[in-house]
């Protein structure tokens, strides 16, 4: 079948959008990362690799934000994936109860970040918050904490909120992946006398790898870019303990008016996310088994 060349015109709107909203900002960020542009003035100077040198050797907070981001990402990726998978296994079969539970677990996802931040800030409030009050009510007051005010645990408190916020979204991906596994494979495993754990390890998990890859990659990217929750709940404090790269870029660009330097950090950030995501794809794909 001969395809008319004019069919390629249909690519133009998409290409245009991609160029305007992705290529142009990315190239601009790369360009400005070699300048001292303040984001407001019409003039700037090229500073070579000074911004990159500063990020790697002269910026303690930037290095701290990378550490915070990694802590946040590890907790969120591990627990969000496990929680979503566990809940997906619970609500896998289609009946009224599981459909209701799926909707219930998915519900936080449809809330706005600011609403979630408001709800959880109230939950975590050390004196008025429902979490500490509940702990005290059930006699576990020794577990009550200053959840967002203690610099040792604040980042993990944010991670819990992030997991609550997004696990439902990942659950749906897992449910779709689980439902795509042919029943025959489970029947064979049963006939062969496989235990539930063996069935999960040898049948479910390998065939779930594509879904798990998406979940892990998406969760990683999402946790690296969890700007809104952090911004609204702690603003990066106390003492920069919850400052992550995304909020730091905001501070540098919009509070310090150092767009050139913020662009350099953005470029580094993009490369870090790309590397981690690539490694995850490689690692998870190596687990795939063909039948």
């Amino acid at each position: 079948m001969k395809i008319s060349k004019s069919i390629y015109l249909f690519f133009l709107p998409g290409l245009f959008l991609y160029a305007v909203f992705f290529v142009y900002p990315t190239v601009s960020a790369l360009f400005y990362s070699f300048t001292d542009w303040d984001g407001l003035s019409s003039s700037f100077q090229f500073v070579g690799i000074d911004n990159y040198e500063r990020a790697f050797t002269g910026d303690t907070i930037f290095r701290k934000t990378i550490g915070n981001n990694l802590k946040f990402m590890l907790v969120v990726v591990v627990f969000q994936t496990l929680v979503a998978l566990a809940f997906a296994l619970i609500v896998l079969k289609n009946n009224k109860t599981t459909v209701f539970l799926r909707a219930l677990y998915f519900f936080p996802t449809i809330l706005s970040s600011v609403s979630v931040a408001f709800i959880w800030s109230f939950i975590y409030d050390p004196s008025l918050g429902i979490l500490n009050q509940t702990l005290e009510l059930v006699g576990l007051d020794f577990l009550a904490q200053n959840w967002l005010g203690n610099s040792n645990i604040a980042i993990y408190s944010l991670a819990v909120t992030q997991i609550w916020f997004h696990a439902g979204q990942m659950l749906i991906i897992f449910v779709a992946g689980l439902q795509a596994i042919p029943d025959e494979l489970y029947e064979v495993a049963k006939i062969e006398g496989a235990t539930k754990w063996q069935t999960f390890r040898k049948v479910t998990w390998p065939l779930l790898a594509p879904s798990a890859t998406i979940v892990v990659a998406y969760t990683t990217i999402q946790s690296f870019k969890a700007f809104d929750l952090v911004f609204a709940m702690t603003g990066g404090g106390p003492n920069n303990s919850t400052e992550i790269v995304a909020t730091y870029i905001f501070d540098i660009a919009f509070r310090s008016y150092q767009f050139g330097y913020a662009s350099a950090i953005s470029v580094i950030f993009m490369i870090i996310i790309a590397i981690i995501t690539f490694l995850q794809f490689k690692a998870l794909r190596s687990d795939r088994i063909s039948y």
Partner: peptide
């Protein structure tokens, strides 16, 4: 200042 001051929002402080 109250305990857990770093976790206290301005709304909570105003309520106090």
């Amino acid at each position: 200042i109250q305990a857990d001051a770093l976790g206290t929002s301005q709304d909570s402080a105003m309520a106090m």
